Computed example of a mutant assay.
Amino acid sequence: MVGEYFENGFPVIVKFVSELPAKGIVSKMKWFTVISWNYDGSQNNGMPPEAINQRMLLLEEALDKAFRNGKITHHAYNRTGNSLKEFNYYISDRDKFMSRFNSALAKHERYPIEINFYEDPDWSEMNRLIEDFKPKQ
């Protein structure tokens, strides 16, 4: 699903699957992991300039390839807008995640990103997003 909302007057685009995975996946992936990339979107309605967007696509491709098997991660959603790009995952193990992350990006030029981990065993962040974009009855 692709959704849009506004933050400080700027559009923010989110891409996500609008349902939770099987309970077995939810129960083993208790860490909500946010990879953040701040950029200057002041000249582009809050969206990344083309050159930065191309680098973001390279990062996204590398992350998709590194984590596609789903054994230690489950992709939650991506968001872009208001001068911030985020790649959000639920993961089972922070050390394994960082090891695979660093291996996947070893040959890449350094990215201006920050990674934060939050305990979220109930997947409250994902539930909130799904609820926010649930069709109105």
Rank of each mutant, 00 (worst) to 15 (best):
S124K: 07
I52H: 11
A66G: 13
T33Y: 04
S18V: 01
N78M: 14
M98N: 12
A104T: 02
K15E: 13
N69H: 08
M29D: 01
P11D: 05
E109W: 03
E109M: 13
A66F: 06
K136M: 12
N69G: 09
G41C: 02
Y77R: 11
D122F: 02
F117W: 07
I130D: 02
Q137W: 00
T80Q: 09
P11H: 10
V17S: 12
L20F: 10
P48Q: 00
P121T: 02
Y89C: 07
T80G: 03
G3Q: 09
N53L: 14
S92P: 06
F87H: 13
Q43W: 15
I35E: 06
P112I: 10
T73A: 13
L84C: 00
V17K: 08
N102P: 00
Y90F: 03
W123V: 03
N82I: 04
F87S: 15
E131K: 15
D120G: 00
G41K: 04
V2W: 11
R128G: 08
P112Q: 03
I25C: 01
E125N: 09
P135F: 09
D40Q: 01
N82W: 07
N78R: 12
F97M: 07
T73P: 02
Q54D: 13
K71T: 11
I113F: 08
L84E: 04
P112F: 08
F133Y: 13
F16M: 09
S42V: 08
L129G: 03
F133N: 10
N8P: 02
K15A: 13
G70V: 00
K85F: 07
L129Q: 02
F32M: 04
K134D: 05
A62I: 08
D132R: 01
L58W: 10
E86Y: 05
E109V: 04
S103W: 06
I52P: 05
E131D: 11
M1P: 07
E125G: 06
A106E: 12
G70M: 13
N53P: 05
E61T: 14
G3M: 15
T80K: 14
D122I: 02
S27A: 15
K136S: 09
H75Y: 15
